[in-house]
Amino acid sequence: MTTPATQPSEDLVRRSSPAAINRERDQEIARRVAHYSGQPEANITRRLEELEREWDMERALEVNASSLALLSLVLGVTVNRKWLLLTGVVGSFLLQHGLQGWCPPLPLLRRLGLRTRGEIDTEKAALKTLRGDFDGLRSAPRPS
């Protein structure tokens, strides 16, 4: 049995996100793939390159949390020690996200359009299929 701590993080994020947000992300993927289905291969390749550079939820949370922690550390040392409390809050949010897949900034980031690595990879796989990357693969024999 998988526990929240052993599930892939994108599954935890999707499970912690409202169903409407997950549907919206899935519909965005379907719309983009439909759009590129009639496009030249070069356009699909450009989109795949964009997807390689897209930040996923984990990266955004990690960068934001570490930036806030460092800022609060500097402010705590130079301005007022009370700023050090922000480091504790940010750290607890990051810990909560790591254990449960949810933290207070997550709903806002999801509404802003951030996607999980799995959602990005789903779009990439669909576009690669459109481009024909998998055409040469033979299907594996079915076990009898």
Rank of each mutant, 00 (worst) to 15 (best):
S37V: 00
E54F: 06
A20P: 00
L75F: 11
S9F: 10
G113I: 09
E62C: 03
E54T: 11
G136P: 05
R81H: 06
A30F: 02
Q100V: 09
N80D: 15
S9E: 10
G101K: 01
G76F: 04
L61V: 02
R15G: 06
L51A: 10
L114C: 04
L70M: 11
V63Q: 12
L85G: 11
D133R: 04
E10D: 15
E41Q: 10
N64V: 04
R59M: 12
R32G: 12
E28W: 12
K124G: 03
D135L: 11
L109K: 03
D121L: 15
W83T: 00
V90T: 15
W55M: 12
R15Q: 14
L95F: 12
W55E: 14
S9Q: 14
N22G: 00
G38V: 02
R15S: 12
P18Y: 00
R25Q: 13
P18E: 10
Y36L: 15
L99D: 01
I44S: 06
E24I: 00
R117E: 14
R32Y: 00
L73R: 02
E24T: 07
W83K: 00
R46H: 10
V77G: 03
R111N: 12
T116P: 00
Y36M: 09
D135W: 01
N43E: 15
C103G: 01
L68D: 08
Q7V: 06
S37Y: 01
L75C: 12
N22Y: 00
V77I: 14
R138Q: 13
Q96R: 05
A69M: 14
A65L: 10
P18K: 04
A60I: 12
V74T: 10
T129Q: 13
A125I: 04
V79T: 08
E50R: 11
W55C: 05
L73W: 07
G132M: 07
S66R: 11
L70S: 06
N43T: 00
Y36S: 03
S139I: 10
A126W: 02
S66V: 09
T2G: 02
L61K: 02
I120Q: 05
L114F: 15
E50Y: 09
G132H: 07
L130V: 02
L114I: 05
K124L: 03
E52A: 14
K124W: 01
E28H: 08
D56L: 07
T87Y: 08
M57Y: 04
L130N: 02
D133C: 07
L73N: 04
